[in-house]
Design a binder for these strands. Structure first.
Lengths: 367, 367
DNA sequence: TTGAAAGCGCTAACAT
DNA sequence: ATGTTAGCGCTTTCAA
């Protein structure tokens, strides 16, 4: 009823209870049709009365296959929330939340979606999913720990250093997410950053006819940012512009920093007619700055982001962006791993997932 | 570099490469200080050159402990999204999303948060997390599969039938989430539904002085709903009212159904001054109906929900609700499991997490 | 159809 | 400080 009292029953217990050999018990579990009905019933009865649950570890050890895939994510932020009390009544805190004091519940829904996608795909393929967040100093331990238990491993970009990854890849298939590391010899699943940004920027420049632009980039070491910047440059070239025609500013993908930079930008004389940001968080910061400066979006300045985070749907105005299929990223990762089970040899493969440009009020289809 | 070619190296391989015994290899991994430095270095070198990753399964089998906890969630919905194209350009779809054609990215962030909480706590305790969604007919298989691999299992209410759970509980500690099943003999972690609803309803009746009420309940078999309804009745009693004074309607926790019911309610003559809903989705449906009927919220009718989903923060008007600490639910679950490791015997424990009433525009602190 | 027995890769006494 | 060895619980030939 509550916790188990003695050592869990094993095949041996079931076997003797049912008066058969352990091999037969195993067969009842794996290949029931290979056992006579009467025998099978007796074994199943024994399983019930004993409360037998087969040890997945022993099975994996004997069977050379775990049926589990691993997913390594960067650390989750633990955000202890601080909220003002209004009234306390019956032990339940009551908060005046009309100003949305409550934080967005999570800062990285991005990973949640990847996780969900991976879980879904794994389930459909009869695999279990083992998740771990690769934080802190114990990362090596975690990675080895997980790697030693699974048939394949999906790793979110920059979660794990290359050498560790290579080490692990000698044991099981490894696929890298959101970072095309074919050059490093890994399979990868990523998103078409360049095409997405190119399409969006082309919309701004070509269709809306905006040629006075600022580009708010991310941290220099971000592979995502590099690809997006490349897409942006292509769009410029497509329309006879060069980077020289654009005010380029480097942020850190964060909202606060973006607000600062945009404030400087807007105060610095000629306000650009459009601000292209390399991610949504930055774009939200730009919206903040525009609001503070009294600039209307999109009438005075259009603003675009990249990612498709939820907050962008609810911002004022709603944010035009390039939406990444995060759930699909997770699914594709599991698929890539399973592919490798069959195709143990062969060159690394890179899956590129399509993105979608979502035109919302901050940079509408037409002005 | 890419996939591994031969059978993965084992302790034996490492041992002979380093010229030591397998026990020494094991020691280097588990208790490095018990090995002379020179030896240790040789072993570590061998590990590197061979690309050795210890088998977690073998270790768990030999060591009687897996270091993994399992989390069983109900199935995730797979929502294939349909969106209208606006333009296609360079292979990237461009969508006019000014009307928010895009769906909320996920329908059950609730579980995502639980999952994240569990992951966080597990990580802090040096445990890995194995997730599975208990869907479909193969549920028994999945449950057994997971249960056979982990040291403890957290199960979201109603994901798994009781008998299966009892079976599993004979092997490992099991804790049930969001459903107090102490009576069934399981440890549980749940949320104080009754107190939350009681506090919220007391605010509506006592502080705002609203006595013309409708209560939109959920499905009859929902334990959550029952507790919330009980809390509501208490609030009524606290203020000298009875259920006879209230229009009670049964919905299904869904938005669409709630909208229908509320429409009927509003069209049926006397419009109640307040509608208390047993969850947020329903409350959103009521807001829809009120809007369609031309009723102003909160001026004509106040509306409250329960859960604290994100959508409620962005609705028009923002939804007053009772916020459940979902992440904390996951964390507490892992803690409860770990507790059981120490405390193998003893009566089941029930952890009750506090909720918070968030007063937003749909039912403000004062009218 | 069923049983006997040999591992799977590792940990943990127990020896040395 | 290091080696030997007996399992951990299961799958899987190979025999019967």
């Amino acid at each position: 009823m509550s916790a188990q009292r003695t050592a869990p029953p094993t095949v041996y217990d079931v076997a003797s209870e049912a008066g058969v050999s352990i091999a037969t018990v195993s067969r009842v579990l794996r290949t029931p049709d290979a056992v006579r009905e009467g025998t099978r019933d007796r074994v199943q009865a024994a399983i019930r009365t004993l409360g037998y649950v087969p040890s997945g570890n022993a099975r994996a050890l004997a069977g050379k296959r775990t049926g589990v895939v691993g997913l390594l994510l960067p650390g989750f932020d633990v955000v202890p929330d601080e909220r003002p009390d209004l009234v306390t009544d019956g032990g339940v805190r009551v908060v005046d939340d009309r100003r949305h004091v409550t934080q967005p519940f999570s800062s990285n829904l991005y990973f949640d979606e990847v996780l969900r996608g991976a879980e879904t795909e794994a389930w459909q393929r009869g695999l279990a999913l083992m998740v771990a967040a690769g934080r802190g100093s114990s990362r090596d331990v975690i990675v080895n720990d997980v790697a030693g238990r699974v048939d394949g491993l999906a790793v979110l970009a920059q979660t794990v250093p290359d050498d560790l990854l290579e080490h692990v890849a000698r044991r099981i298939p490894v696929v890298v997410l959101a970072d095309d590391r074919r050059s490093h010899g890994f399979d990868s699943v990523s998103v078409d950053n360049a095409a997405g940004m190119r399409t969006l920027a082309s919309h701004v420049i070509g269709r809306l006819g905006i040629r006075s632009l600022a580009y708010l980039a991310g941290p220099i070491d971000s592979p995502d940012d590099m690809e997006r910047a490349a897409g942006f440059r292509q769009a410029l070239a497509d329309h006879g512009l060069t980077v020289a025609d654009v005010r380029v500013v480097h942020g850190d993908f964060g909202r606060a920093r973006a607000r600062e930079l945009a404030t400087t930008l807007f105060d610095g004389g000629a306000v650009p007619r459009g601000v292209i940001c390399s991610n949504d968080q930055s774009a939200l910061g730009v919206l903040d700055a525009a609001g503070a400066r009294g600039l209307r979006v999109p009438e005075d300045v259009v603003v675009t982001g990249f990612d498709g985070i939820d907050a962008g749907r609810f911002s004022a105005p709603p944010l035009t962006t390039v939406h990444q299929p995060m759930g699909e990223l997770g699914r594709a990762a599991v698929r890539a791993i399973v592919d490798r089970f069959e195709r143990r040899e062969g060159p690394p493969r890179a899956v590129r997932l399509p993105v979608e440009v979502l035109l919302r009020e901050s940079c509408p289809p037409a002005l």
